[in-house]
Nucleic acid binder design. Structure first.
Lengths: 229, 229
DNA sequence: ATGGTTAGTGTATAATGAACACTAACTGGA
DNA sequence: TCCAGTTAGTGTTCATTATACACTAACCAT
């Protein structure tokens, strides 16, 4: 069975840039292609959009199928449609980026049937298609994002220390931040709840654990805030 | 002649939200549809993407064909792909927004063969398809944009007064701004050049004219700046 | 007990933001 | 020509926020 149209049509795909935070390092999930073109090369998870699903549904389905990830934070990034980005034919891709708690998802990805793996952002292989520049665009967006809304909720484990949160900002912004000033500022936002728990299994003074107050956090995200640390 | 594919394919379009500034008012250019569906309704300029042109080229071509606008500032906005946004079939649209000097383009649009017209942002007709929500998204983007980069270059005439620039900010942000503080801040940015000219044909003290220093302006845009007035 | 390691805390100074009102310059009409 | 009307243009004060900076506390391992 085939489908006929009066004019030629581009193929439509979605691709996802999945960021995870691991031990104060930003990582990205990639899959190894098992089909031509670029067979054996690493690429962003993604695939063709079905005509009976929305773009976001397509992105979530591909993420689930190719990496096992579900219920992640997902936002549309940009749509890439240069003429020769796919050697086979005209393919337009709607790119998305996801932020996930790597602590929740480490195992699943590693044991998934497909060859999916986390890569350090600074040790990426050469990617298939124009996925390298899609990834770069996503990284820029992430860096821009932290300037006007707090991040962390989606990337950190549910309970975290202030040092972990600070390290996240340092890693995204690629510079060191003063500890005392960072703490003052982030606590002032009123989105953190101090818990009666401390971290365990550390060979030094244990740090207090915090968690986000989801309501305040989301309000702040909606209102928009200038958070320059 | 028809084109056949193994799987069904969505149609791909571009749509443009064109903002212009007129006498301290934001306006949007719309065209009246001369074909079904929504025949006679006002809609965003746009149309199908050809397979031999990039997405941006398609947006520029449609703008030129439908409104006569050329060489405008154009940025990708968002891609809309809900299942039933077009009653005929699955259509995914890559939306763009443009900022133009209305003073340059007022006449062309009015005399163009197609029914294209500028509408005040607060007096819009009901639009075809989901173009109303695309337009709303573009307006949000514009409001967000002024928070971290200066605007004006694309919207104001080449020579303008500080009051005009301030009015632009007031119109986009929908609130009044203190004149002295605004002037201090905007001049500090170092992107304005004071000219030896004043406005003419006004029944009061004539205001000094300024223009943007393109290099500084673009540097600032690239660097990103928090400009909260 | 001691050495190693990270947690946790305050203050002083500089920079920035916000609030606020009057005089200057020009036009047009009496 | 003077007066009324209109918008241009300009500084200061006070409050808030940003930045720079160093030591003690707590815990673990040996």
């Amino acid at each position: 069975m085939t489908f006929q149209y009066e004019f030629p049509r581009a193929a439509l795909t979605v691709d996802c840039v999945v960021f995870g935070l691991d031990d104060a390092e930003l990582k990205v999930m990639l899959i190894q292609r098992d089909l031509a073109p670029f067979r054996g090369k690493w690429a962003l998870p993604g695939g063709f959009v079905h005509t009976d699903e929305s773009l976001e549904d397509a992105a979530r389905r591909e993420l689930r199928e190719e990496t096992g990830l579900k219920n992640v934070f997902l936002e549309q990034l940009y749509t890439f449609g240069d003429l020769n980005r796919d050697p086979r034919e005209r393919v337009v891709t709607v790119a998305w980026y996801a932020l996930v708690r790597l602590s929740d998802h480490r195992v699943k990805a590693a044991t998934d049937a497909r060859d999916a793996a986390w890569f350090r952002l600074h040790e990426l292989p050469k990617l298939a298609f124009d996925h390298g520049s899609i990834l770069e665009t996503a990284h820029e967006r992430l860096r821009g994002k932290v300037r006007y809304e707090p991040i962390g909720f989606e990337l950190l484990p549910k309970k975290f220390t202030l040092t972990q949160l600070q390290k996240l900002y340092e890693v995204v912004l690629d510079r060191v931040i003063d500890k005392r000033n960072f703490r003052k500022k982030i606590l002032q936002l009123g989105v953190l709840e101090e818990l009666d728990e401390v971290e365990t299994n550390v060979a030094h003074r244990a740090a207090r654990l915090y968690r986000f107050k989801p309501k305040n956090y989301r309000n702040l995200v909606k209102r928009g805030v200038n958070f320059e640390v």
